[in-house]
């Protein structure tokens, strides 16, 4: 059904197709039960993303030039950009999470940018990917927070300098807001990328539909212009969402390191 679906249908781009299936883990042997493991188009683009990042960073710094070339300068800029972000938001102690934040930022950025190529699959447009990334951050924050501060981590929910009689209201609010972090953290990325790609595809589809509509064909210029403008916007969103995700990660890590407000 996916194969003969309408080519301009905007949801088709998110379809996951298996290149080869390894098998199913668990389940009762019937179709659909258990967890199916396959190498999919999504997996392919995850692998490509990692290859591009690692290839770029490792090859560009191969010369270890004292005076950097263009590519090395770009790699150094990425490094310093994230290093400064971590240092300013999470302090010097947060620098132990620098490789983690850097990997997150680069992974999301390159995955988003891969999605800007026509016919390429966008890894981050799938809910589960964004959720897993956000959960990874959340679990890191909780585990490190308790490891470092013990029960002092609970101070996170008790803002200092407020009178005791509003505590019963503030503490639950803080707690709920803490628990809802992975939700907002992941849905922001997922929603932005998904919506952007759908809107882009809708306008692209309108161009195709209008071109096929005989006398209406000249009007196709309108959605075409829109699609061009949205493409520019989507490049911005692709970079911005990676940045936002990384900044929020730093902010959350800062809470784990310094739980007192």
């Amino acid at each position: 059904m996916a194969d003969n679906a309408n080519p301009i249908e905007p949801i088709h781009q998110f379809e996951i197709s298996n290149f080869f299936t390894f098998g199913t883990i668990g389940g009762d042997g019937t179709e659909g039960s258990g967890v199916e493991i396959a190498f999919t188009n999504s997996a392919l683009f995850m692998v490509l993303t990692v290859l591009v990042i690692a290839g770029f960073l490792i090859l560009s710094t191969r010369g270890r030039g004292l005076v950097p070339g263009r590519m090395q300068l770009l790699a150094e800029m990425c490094y310093e950009f994230i290093a400064n972000m971590v240092r300013t938001s999470a302090g010097t102690e947060g620098m132990r999470f620098f490789p983690f934040v850097f990997s997150l930022f680069m992974f999301i950025l390159i995955a988003n940018l891969f999605g800007m190529f026509p016919y390429f699959f966008t890894v981050t447009s799938h809910l589960i990917v964004a959720v897993m990334l956000a959960l990874m951050v959340f679990i890191t924050v909780v585990v490190y927070g308790f490891m470092r501060n013990g029960f002092g981590f609970f101070k996170l929910f008790v803002p200092s300098g407020i009178p005791w009689y509003v505590m019963w209201l503030v503490v639950p609010i803080e707690f709920i807001s803490f628990l809802s972090r992975p939700l907002s953290h992941s849905l922001r990325l997922f929603g932005n990328i998904l919506a952007g790609h759908i809107v882009l595809k809708v306008f692209g589809g309108m161009v195709v539909a209008l071109l096929a509509a005989g006398a209406w064909a000249p009007l196709a210029i309108l959605p075409f212009g829109m699609a061009v403008a949205l493409t520019g916007l989507e490049f911005l969103v692709a970079a911005l969402q990676a940045f936002v995700f990384a900044v929020l990660t730093c902010v959350y890590l800062n809470d784990a390191i310094h739980p007192g407000h």
Binding site: I25, E36, I37, S42, T49, I53, A54
Partner: peptide
């Protein structure tokens, strides 16, 4: 139905990326 594969590959690729980076 696609979650299993995605989680697996995300864990693998991100793990490799983290190792390569760090």
């Amino acid at each position: 139905a696609t979650f299993g594969s995605q989680i697996l590959w995300l864990a693998l690729t991100f793990g490799v990326l983290y190792l390569l980076m760090s």
